[in-house]
Design a protein around this nucleic acid. Sequence first.
DNA 1: GACTGTAGACGTACTTAGTACGATAATCAA
DNA 2: TTGATTATCGTACTAAGTACGTCTACAGTC
Lengths: 222, 222
Amino acid sequence: MTDQAQRKVKLSRERIVDAAITLADQSGLESLTIRALADHLGTRPMTLYHHVDGKESLLDWMVDRVFAQMELPSPDLDWIDALRQRCRSTRAVLVEHPWSVPLLESRTSPGPELLRHHEAMLATLDRGGLPLDRMAHAYAVLDSYVYGFSLQEANLPAQGGEQIAEVAHEVVAAFASGAYPQLARLTSEHVMRPGYSFGSSFDVGLEMLLAGISARAEEEGA
Amino acid sequence: MTDQAQRKVKLSRERIVDAAITLADQSGLESLTIRALADHLGTRPMTLYHHVDGKESLLDWMVDRVFAQMELPSPDLDWIDALRQRCRSTRAVLVEHPWSVPLLESRTSPGPELLRHHEAMLATLDRGGLPLDRMAHAYAVLDSYVYGFSLQEANLPAQGGEQIAEVAHEVVAAFASGAYPQLARLTSEHVMRPGYSFGSSFDVGLEMLLAGISARAEEEGA
DNA sequence: GACTGTAGACGTACTTAGTACGATAATCAA
DNA sequence: TTGATTATCGTACTAAGTACGTCTACAGTC
């Protein structure tokens, strides 16, 4: 017992999924291989197959773990505020795990955490008094926006301001031809400016959607 | 010349990209392999490498071809109408090529068609009188929504009404436990109804965003 | 304390997929 | 014709997922 406890902490599905997420965060999904994962855990590839069904299943678990990190809409807030808070939290989590966004929707089997989120979101929309059809619309619309924004944000050339300026510089040079005047203008006069942040657009769109959703709820109530 | 024209139509990058898109549309990205593509074209794998740099580059070309299929915002329409038309067209094209959505943003090198789209969109927003920062917001917000919606729509279990009802049925049964009352209600009383279509939510959200964008433009003009 | 069953760990090897390399065939210019 | 350029393709290497069977360590029984 002592011997084994010293060397390795005992493998488990949870530990494997955690390690996989760490690896994906660090070096991207494409470098998450079963062999690399085994190395990282100090074990051999085939050992992992005793805890996880296969790589596809591992990806499912990883996605579910990401959902677990998002805040559920709080029942204590006004329903619109609760929606805003959960959407912001969702985006924040997705951007921290950029690899997860394309996976979110392509996984066929919904995990328990995903179901909890759906349920909580629907309950919040219900609190706002939305009938079923508007509930469905509102949820589809909000999630589309949050996923889409995160998808774009997660794939920006670089997070650090330096590299982004570098890339932008190339783009500007390439556009000096004059074929893309608007792009050139936007890049040089806006994107390359010190304070620029793509993420700042998130709230803008979110408020538009929330305004639309609450306006429709009031119509209903009237 | 006659001999060769009979047997095979002469390989070209264009033909290869077209075939790749056809294959991906039919059986999904994961079954698009270099070997399968070569078979489909009646040639050998390595032949393709004389027209395409490698698989990654092939994916880039495929994405650019998808962009080429989308309508640009028409300069003849009112700017808001032009935005609406181009967003609808974008969604329609993306849903026809479900494999493309996760790729759109992950491709690092923007193709010529993508640049044309960006340029045309920015020009349209400029027509609306938006200053640079609002232009950037508006574009980011619209594209996020369109991509996100398409991402969700492209990954629905099935397009045909039959299979969707089948899946929904399982879900309802699984939720009979009572752990997910809202989900159960939404599924059984709304999603499973005959006329239901996820896609119908698209215009709802799009109008919210367009309303928000044009309202902000008017503020500016005032 | 020896015996045995079970679960976890792992070595080996098969399969699929991308693609480097070099040889061969086809096209075209001079 | 001839040389050069271009296209085609056969072979083989590498990376990655994973099936199969073995081995080890510990649990519980006699």
